[in-house]
């Protein structure tokens, strides 16, 4: 099937290339970040006036949002930026993306970041925190967080994640769960719900390939994990709740209490072979029932 795999985009050069499935930009070539005045297309101006947008979204010349139409990975990221802005922590944040569609996102963000190998963000983040954090007792800052897909986080990266939890690393893990390998064309991941068809389970996932892993629930069993929650961004109400979870996760880290983790359910319309609207319905009807929203461990 996929000569059209998006994996190429996950790489630096690809961001400036023409992505096969990505949105064509409605924006004109832009200016420096933080500039709120001046010329824009009316479309954009309106969007900004109504909802605002975090300053940390950078304006890229060619390709402001390199993800597919209806993708919710940028939505989830935006929730992160909202929180950082609210806390005034952009300057203290260090983002460690893995490999997947989410690795496109840091190129759009005005934040320090270190891209890692597939599945390894918890390893890098642990080291960054321990090197930059001021001593074992006072490891509040910088605010180090990973941004990973479900495949990155709990398939290839399971060993890194579990051991960061075992070491009680004072970092935050953010897992964008679109229940498949979005970048490479929609293969089964450990979080694929039963019955869901993917390109490696064309008849739908059956128990012969196991059952979906519930990561926050699993991490909650670790003594060194201080906060674990699952949110979604499919409705404004869920978006707001997810924002609150992310904030609590960051606060947990700043209080030096141990590893914090938030999973965010995201739609992936092209790989689910659905329209963006149907994807939202599908999240509500089929994913949330198998992946309950809420907090599993916390203050």
């Amino acid at each position: 099937m996929n000569g059209e795999s998006r994996e190429g985009l996950a790489l630096f050069g690809g961001v400036l290339g023409v992505p096969p499935k990505a949105l064509k930009s409605p924006l004109p070539a832009s200016r420096e970040r933080g500039d709120t005045g001046g010329e824009r297309t009316s479309d954009h101006m309106q969007r900004q006036l109504v909802a605002g947008r975090p300053d940390a979204w950078m304006r890229l010349e060619f390709n402001p949002i390199p993800t597919c139409p209806g993708c919710q990975e940028p939505t989830a990221t935006r929730a992160v930026l909202d929180v950082l802005e609210e806390m005034g922590m952009e300057g203290e944040a260090i983002l460690v993306p893995g490999v997947g569609c989410h690795s496109l996102i840091p190129f759009m963000l005005d934040l320090d970041h270190v891209m890692s190998a597939h599945g390894r963000p918890p390893d890098l983040a642990s080291a960054i925190k321990r090197v930059l954090g001021r001593g074992a007792a006072d490891r509040a800052l910088p605010l180090v967080f990973t941004l990973q897909g479900d495949g990155d986080c709990i398939a290839i990266g399971a060993g890194s994640l579990v051991n960061a939890a075992a070491r009680s690393e004072n970092i935050t893990v953010l897992m964008l769960n679109n229940v498949n390998y979005g970048t490479t064309g929609g293969q089964m991941s450990p979080t694929t719900p039963l019955g869901h068809a993917t390109s490696t389970t064309p008849g739908g996932r059956t128990p012969d390939y196991g059952y979906p892993v519930r990561v926050p629930e699993m991490l909650a069993t670790f003594q060194g994990v201080a906060y674990a929650a699952r949110g979604a961004v499919n409705t404004p109400a869920n978006y707001q709740k997810t924002r609150a979870y992310i904030k609590k996760a960051f606060q947990t880290q700043m209080a030096g209490r141990g590893l914090s983790m938030v999973e965010v359910l995201c739609s992936c319309p092209p790989d689910w072979h659905m329209t963006p609207l149907n994807s939202l319905k599908w999240i509500e009807a089929h994913i949330i029932p198998q992946f309950p929203l809420g907090e599993f461990k916390g203050p």
Partner: peptide, 30 residues
């Protein structure tokens, strides 16, 4: 394990091998 540009190979086996009664298994990493 998925990776471009070999995905068609893995996906072919995922589709055909179970039908043929042979073993296909997607791993968690290479």
């Amino acid at each position: 394990y998925p990776i471009t540009p070999q995905n068609e190979i893995t996906e072919w086996f995922a589709r055909e091998f179970p039908r043929m009664g042979r073993v296909f298994l997607q791993s968690q990493s290479e």
